[in-house]
């Protein structure tokens, strides 16, 4: 009798829980947008617009040819730069992390390069490469590579030495050791690095276009601002925000896949 009651009650509990979670998730955003809408009807500020106006501007500005001409190339450069920095950063990180003398030799140098604020590289890249798409990709790569490189070095360095020696005494080939032991062991750190690189890359994408470009998302936003197209400018800011959120979510999905074993292991040790 009680058992039946319990099983019957459970679906409703689940429904209540889902509804509650949903309420918590959208409650504050809905409230904020509502307040914003009310406030915008009374405000006379020149620089702030209401949600309705913003949505209209967003639709008119970005949905259509501008998406293909400005947004896609920007995102494309961002992704190329990111992939290049992941490839280079992980490859160099593995080499530097495995060779101790090399690591000790490069350490002060790497610390210094990491400390240079990445946007400062834009004028340098403009000088060396001119105002080209290659320049923008190089800027994104040269800024985003440091967190990946340094985290990879750290991750490779802290690979369990007992495991490494076991692998060696079992005569596992160098290549297999790299793919089956070192890279997986370093992957949590590598993913941390990539996550930091994401935001740096996005910043550099925008800045490089604000600086030296006649197209692209960053250029558009700066253009709207210079011409006092306030609603359009806000819509650009919104779009950048959406790209940032989308990147973060996409990265979260990838990270959960790649590090599933790691999170699982942590659960076990905690329990």
């Amino acid at each position: 009798m009680t058992a039946v009651g319990a099983t019957k009650a459970r679906p409703r509990d689940l429904g209540v829980r889902v509804a509650e979670n949903l309420l918590f998730a959208v409650g504050l955003p809905v409230l904020a947008v509502g307040l914003w809408a009310v406030w915008s009807t009374r405000s006379t500020s020149r620089f702030l617009v209401g949600p309705g106006t913003l949505l209209d501007a967003f639709r008119q500005t970005w949905i259509g040819p501008a998406f293909v001409e400005d947004v896609l190339p920007s995102v494309y450069r961002l992704l190329i730069g990111l992939f290049a920095s992941i490839l280079l950063g992980v490859a160099a990180g593995v080499v530097i992390g495995r060779l101790r003398p090399l690591r000790e030799m490069l350490e002060p140098l790497l610390e210094f390069f990491r400390a240079i604020p990445p946007p400062v590289l834009i004028p340098v890249a403009m000088l060396l490469l001119g105002i080209t798409d290659t320049m923008k990709v190089v800027v994104i790569t040269s800024g985003a590579i440091w967190p990946i490189l340094l985290n990879t070095i750290e991750g490779v360095r802290s690979t369990d030495s007992v495991m490494l020696e076991t692998a060696r005494s079992f005569r596992i080939s160098r290549w297999d050791r790299l793919w089956l032991l070192i890279l997986p062991a370093a992957s949590p750190r590598i993913m941390t690095g990539v996550r930091q690189a994401l935001s740096v890359a996005l910043i550099l994408m925008v800045i490089s276009e604000m600086f030296a470009s006649s197209a692209g998302l960053g250029y558009r936003i700066a253009y709207f601002q210079r011409n006092y197209l306030i609603a359009e400018m806000w819509s650009g800011i919104l779009l950048l925000g959406l790209i940032g959120v989308f990147l973060a979510v996409a990265f979260g999905v990838v990270e959960r896949r790649v590090l599933r074993w790691y999170h699982g292991m942590k659960e076990i040790t905690r329990a």
Binding site: V206, M210, G218, F224, G236, I237, V245, L247
Partner: peptide
């Protein structure tokens, strides 16, 4: 949080 802060520069 992920909104790039440089997006606020024009504003």
């Amino acid at each position: 949080r992920p909104v790039p802060s440089v997006a606020l520069i024009p504003l």
